[in-house]
Design a protein around this nucleic acid. Sequence first.
DNA 1: AAGATTAATACTCAATATGAGCATTAATCG
DNA 2: CGATTAATGCTCATATTGAGTATTAATCTT
Lengths: 316, 316
Amino acid sequence: MRNMSLVQTELVAVLVAFNGDTPRVLTLDDGRSLPNGPLKTDDRSLQASLRAAVERQTGVAVGHLEQLYTFADHPPADGEPRRVAISYLALTRVGAERPAEHANPFDDAGSPAAWRDWYDYFPWEDQACPRAASAIMAILQRLDGWITRKPPERWEELRQRRDQVFGLNGESWNDELVLQRYELLYEAGLVPEAHATDVGGDACVAGLAMRHDHRRILATAIARIRAKIRYRPVIYELMSDQFTLFALQQAVERVAGRHVHKQNFRRQVAHQGLIEETGEESREAGGRPARLYRFRRSVVMERAVAGSKLPIVRAR
Amino acid sequence: MRNMSLVQTELVAVLVAFNGDTPRVLTLDDGRSLPNGPLKTDDRSLQASLRAAVERQTGVAVGHLEQLYTFADHPPADGEPRRVAISYLALTRVGAERPAEHANPFDDAGSPAAWRDWYDYFPWEDQACPRAASAIMAILQRLDGWITRKPPERWEELRQRRDQVFGLNGESWNDELVLQRYELLYEAGLVPEAHATDVGGDACVAGLAMRHDHRRILATAIARIRAKIRYRPVIYELMSDQFTLFALQQAVERVAGRHVHKQNFRRQVAHQGLIEETGEESREAGGRPARLYRFRRSVVMERAVAGSKLPIVRAR
DNA sequence: AAGATTAATACTCAATATGAGCATTAATCG
DNA sequence: CGATTAATGCTCATATTGAGTATTAATCTT
């Protein structure tokens, strides 16, 4: 093996829980950081140690844990060591979370922790909610300004990118492009992080800011969840033991940031055979009582690992 | 920011090119390592620097480059620094590769490099080829031995896992489970890497071995490509400028390790509208001459970023 | 207690997509 | 000139998906 540079390596976790009505993410530092800490030399596997740390410190049973992405910051000018962040996504259950004594799962320092609506950081992502419309309106105006200050030969390309990413002019909104949207705003200087100096400030246009590249990591996490709920039953990791179909639908809608067709949603869920009736009913909402279901955890396995989508000839 | 450990961080690249008839991967060290090198402090972004390094050293135009996964090795007992590998997948074109003077894209040392059939490392993955059948036969026998040496209360679980991963007893073969299969073999001690001592040796049962966790990284890469060709047009990154539909089909078949239905494949490809006729014909093969096509690179964009698969209500 | 309201649930229908095949066409090979 | 090898064209049954309409069963209001 060749000689290698020494690099500061940190772990960053995006802990997501569905707190009643909206997906929330565990933050530190008055909402400006994600839980993070150094990779310790004596940790077992990255994944195992992260799971243990999270469960020990927050009391949360982490249902689903996966690596997100590894980010390197921009090379520091002043000879400081390079910082690399290995980010993870952790899904936890309603009510299971306990932002307890030690809120930072990596560190015993214990800075004030809080669960925050992830749409506070990305208001334009919540298409099911009217606030997105005004956020987008403001964003598009600023983007136009930015584009027109660029050389005219780039206008076409930039406008196309804007249309594609925000679902304009014939393109339709793609809820999975969270990161692409954030990066466009970043390039355009519309998010505070883009200016190294102040964090905070112009929050109404571009959502709450975070330190370092933590908002980029959060964007990556949201994009990953949105993509994943389409082909893997990860949404159940966010549900409590029993739930109504409507609650399940709302969870999906809040995560995806858009409405789904009720009847078709039920059909799809029923068709998958991943849940079963508990026999009980919920009459918390106004109308006709809804049946309660539970997730059939035993059936899961790696089953339903995406459909083939290739015209593969069956063996049988 | 808190204090952080110093960790040896290396980059590992899986360069894939379609060399005539089979997918090949660039290897060093007589096929036992993947190209790798340290993360340098002055590199720009991880991705950009990797792309530049690969293109400079191999002369390859890397069409598609994406991060794969970040692996941490097992914690070293003797107080050595922890090693972390950030792995990337790079797709290059037929004929574009030049395993040249400096074969290692990260290092000017220049150790002997070679493109090798990736199925040399995973013979059981090539379901379209008879050698897989014998490989699997041998593997299953060994696996059975391993399972029966475990406590009987685990037999059920382990057999289920074996069936699921190798497509036995009602389960069907899932070509995307490359990593899961490798890890099962690893746990069972059927791959040489599992015994720290000798690398090489019993290659006929479990394929060629690699140093460190490089074969695990290669497994991750193959799994990623197999998954990705289903919903993104990455297969074209491996094709030359002009190709016949049959060549395209063969590329998909060799990558996925299984046969596809010819007519349905053509229908699907035509339906996507991502390629266009060049007007020319190829009469290299025996029979009726085949039309030549080219990839419409302009149409790509982020389009076709997966189908919704959620019953989302359309805006329109 | 009747009617309004709120949900849950049941069905229908058309448009597409997918898996499997059969049939036809157009070259080369011996 | 017929056999062989591919490419290409079509058909058909089955699923899957997107959009609705209709019905049922509770609570809430007056």
